[in-house]
Design a protein around this nucleic acid. Structure first.
Length: 748
DNA sequence: GGATGAGTTGTTTTT
DNA sequence: CAACTCATCC
């Protein structure tokens, strides 16, 4: 105990008065901070100061209740959010120190357990060496794909492996390629773990496909175990198992011998995006700590749930009250943060009406019980209309109009010759996908670039399309495949899809362009021709003195590639390619080593590189790396997905993709098909309804990002069913007719 | 406004 | 190959 409640509040206010993010807490926030014992359920609407509340709560626990920081377990949804929060905590703490509160200087604030649930589970399992976890390799998404491709039997062979009917049953179509089987397998099998499916129930099902699924799951798990690998869902599964055993109890209860105090508090941010296994982990921890204290705090907004595809269910937040009552016999204290410190009052008025009046959201269980509208809490001096609609005749036309609009506000000067905005990066385009294709933001990027407006789109997943990457891969291809064998039509060893073939060809072209147009690259030419010779004249059964990785590193040593390494844009791209190769190598490590015949050389060297490595790159796409400390690049209009925008705010927001019909994607179907096999089965609304609700929540997230200006842009206004609320006939589905009543201008 | 044909694309989001 | 966009024609 360092301070009393009153001292704590006074000291925090004094110390943080000038810190960028901090301001006085409002009454609801304060009551959540001062809440001491028992479950706490915070519904935090957009821009309501949720992170601020969490940080104050941590500080209150530490400085008023005297809780040891290392006994607090706080999870966030992304690594980025965890880092941000941690940095803010350190800043606040240093400010308290600067204000001369010496009594807290021995508190080790950095020992707080803050991170994503995955990262915390991972580090604790490593620390406790549970089930030899520290010897296992935790695979990322790409590695996991390679793992399936190489080690998992995905087609019927003998008694093992799923049949075509199996895939048809779960995915309604037969996979047309091995990569599709990889993708399907990942979706299906991670679902079993994350939805907390009872594998025994599956085995005992009357449905033969459910039995087959159980078998397939077991096969996969064995193969993971056998090869000492672990995937993302399995980390959580192991952690839950750990909690239910003696070692886990030690972790929770503390270990005197090792000077580890017991865990005391569980706090969860973004609780609406929690899936069943995560919910069980939080509940189990709470139970082990003390079921009678039931010290669990969850914070989130059901209206902003957007990760059902990952197995998350809003239900965990919406029914938190009932679930806690069922399990612990306690009724959580419910607090709604309804003061919005972000948006212009008219924007708040709009999104309040939007979320409350959409017919799909009025169904029971769609939103948290008793939820109230948000109230504007930030003072806005100017009285202007911050909402507008841009309607084009086609997508390209819309893009032109949006670009025109953006250009005009960038250049705009008022009577006093002052700009409206300081920097183009204050304008943000939100879209379902940041891929620069004609269906997505392609035409928008093009229209902007044509007008000389710089654009920042680091997640467009196309660095494999850049010249420098193609040149490098082209050089590699030149080495391993001098004779263009990818072109031979009737080669049964090399069966390469047209997509990959096109990619290989364009890599070759880029390499050819490079060597014909640039001088000073003798070293590269020498290395390539020497290596070609070496491969050609390789004696049978002799090991090559080269692996994919080594050839790649040698190429990087030759100009111009070696010179590219000092380029701030290209160098990180080579880093990404290098990481890809490493992931590939963890599974395909010895394929270059033993080649006895030309055919096996082709099989090992070419096919694996073409269909597996290139296939996977084309399959998943590669993003540029973003600087976590500088997520915004000044001077450029930002392009961001609705998902990425979560937790952020922007002065001017332009929403795209408004005519999109929801898709009852495979995750909705699987959620339903498997729901009866869950450990805790649940009642689900129809697939259609859940998909529609999720679509509405996605748009809600987009709308609530805007501070001063919110623009809706797309073609065919009367088809904006879920984004603005029209029906099939173009009539407004809102009883309110909000848009008309507020004279929202439409620019055509 | 709808028929036609040319052209483009390969869902999407994160640990 | 299927699904979609979009310009163009009447």
């Amino acid at each position: 105990m360092f301070w009393t409640e009153d001292e704590f509040i006074k000291n925090m206010r004094n110390a943080l008065g000038w810190v960028k993010y901090s301001r006085q807490l409002n009454q609801e926030q304060m009551s959540a901070v001062l809440h001491t014992n028992g479950p706490l359920w915070v519904l935090a609407g957009p821009g309501s100061g949720k992170t601020e509340l969490l940080i104050w709560k941590l500080f209150k626990l530490i400085f008023v209740d005297g809780v040891d920081p290392q006994t607090i377990f706080l999870t966030t949804f992304t690594e980025k959010a965890a880092k941000n929060m941690f940095n803010r905590i350190i800043t606040y703490y240093n400010n308290l120190l600067k204000h001369g509160f010496d009594c807290i200087k021995n508190v080790d604030i950095s020992s707080l357990k803050i991170g994503t649930l995955h990262s915390l589970c991972n580090s604790i399992l490593v620390e406790y060496r549970y089930d030899n976890y520290h010897t296992k390799r935790l695979m990322d998404e790409n590695e996991s794909s390679y793992f399936f491709y190489k080690y998992v039997t995905m087609t019927k062979s003998g008694s093992q492996g799923p049949s075509d009917y199996f895939w048809e049953y779960f995915f309604e179509k037969r996979p047309y390629s091995k990569w599709q089987r990889v993708n399907y397998s990942k979706i299906l099998l991670s679902r079993i773990t994350e939805d907390l499916i009872d594998v025994e129930k599956l085995q005992n099902s009357d449905d033969i496909f459910m039995q087959e699924l159980a078998e397939y799951y077991i096969q996969y798990k064995q193969s993971l175990n056998h090869r000492d690998r672990c995937d993302f869902p399995t980390v959580q599964q192991l952690f839950l198992k750990f909690l239910n055993e003696e070692e886990g109890e030690k972790f929770i209860q503390g270990d005197m011998e090792r000077d580890l105090p017991p865990i005391k508090y569980v706090l969860v941010d973004e609780y609406q995006d929690t899936n069943p296994i995560q919910e069980e982990i939080y509940f189990r921890m709470t139970e082990l700590i003390s079921p009678s204290d039931c010290n669990i705090t969850v914070v989130g907004d059901d209206d902003q749930a957007m990760y059902r595809f990952r197995g998350a269910t809003v239900d965990s937040l919406i029914f938190f009250g009932e679930r806690v009552k069922e399990r612990f016999g306690k009724i959580p204290t419910k607090i709604q943060l309804k003061r919005n410190y972000r948006s212009h009052p008219a924007i708040i008025d709009w999104f309040n009406s939007y979320i409350a009046n959409m017919p799909e959201m009025q169904i029971k269980g769609a939103r948290a019980p008793g939820k109230e509208r948000m109230i504007s809490a930030k003072h806005f001096q100017e009285n202007w209309n911050p909402i507008a609609i841009i309607e084009g005749s086609s997508l390209t036309d819309t893009a032109e109009k949006v670009a025109e609009f953006i250009q005009s506000i960038i250049n705009f000067r008022d009577e006093k010759n002052e700009k409206i905005i300081d920097d183009p990066s204050q304008i943000v385009i939100l879209s379902q996908s940041t891929r620069e294709t004609s269906r997505n933001v392609g035409s928008f990027v093009e229209s902007l670039r044509r007008r000389g407006v710089p654009v920042y789109n680091p997640r467009n997943r196309k660095i494999h399309e850049t010249t420098e990457v193609k040149q490098l891969l082209g050089a590699y291809i030149e080495i391993i495949d001098k004779n263009n064998s990818e072109l031979s039509e009737n080669d049964h060893v090399l069966r390469i899809s047209t997509r990959v073939k096109d990619f290989i060809q364009s890599c070759r072209r880029e390499y050819q362009n490079l060597i014909t147009s640039q001088g000073g690259i003798d070293k590269l030419l020498n290395y390539v021709s020497q290596s070609q010779l070496k491969i050609e004249s390789a004696p049978p059964n002799k090991k090559f003195d080269a692996t994919f990785h080594r050839i790649f590193l040698r190429l990087l040593n030759c100009p111009p590639f070696s010179e590219y390494l000092s380029d701030p844009v290209i160098s990180p791209r080579y880093g990404i390619i290098s990481a890809q190769i490493e992931a590939f190598n963890t599974v395909y490590s010895n394929y270059l080593v033993k080649s006895s015949t030309i055919n096996s050389l082709k099989r090992n060297l070419l096919r694996d590189f073409y269909t597996v490595f290139c296939g996977q790159i084309l399959n998943s796409g590669l993003n540029d790396v973003e600087d976590i400390d500088y997520p915004i690049l000044p001077g450029r209009v930002q392009i961001v997905t609705y998902h990425q925008s979560k937790g952020l705010e922007f002065p001017i927001v332009i929403l795209l993709g408004l005519t999109k019909q929801y898709r009852v994607g495979i995750s909705y179907k699987l959620e339903r098909m498997l729901s009866e096999y869950r450990k805790n089965p649940l009642q689900l609304e129809s697939d259609e309804l859940r998909a529609a609700q999720d679509m509405i929540r996605l748009y809600y997230v987009g709308q609530t990002r805007a501070k001063y200006c919110l623009i809706f842009a797309d073609k065919e206004l009367n088809k904006w069913k879920y984004s603005l609320g029209f029906d099939e006939k173009g009539e407004k589905r809102f009883s309110l007719n909000w848009l008309e009543n507020n004279n929202i201008p439409v620019y055509r």
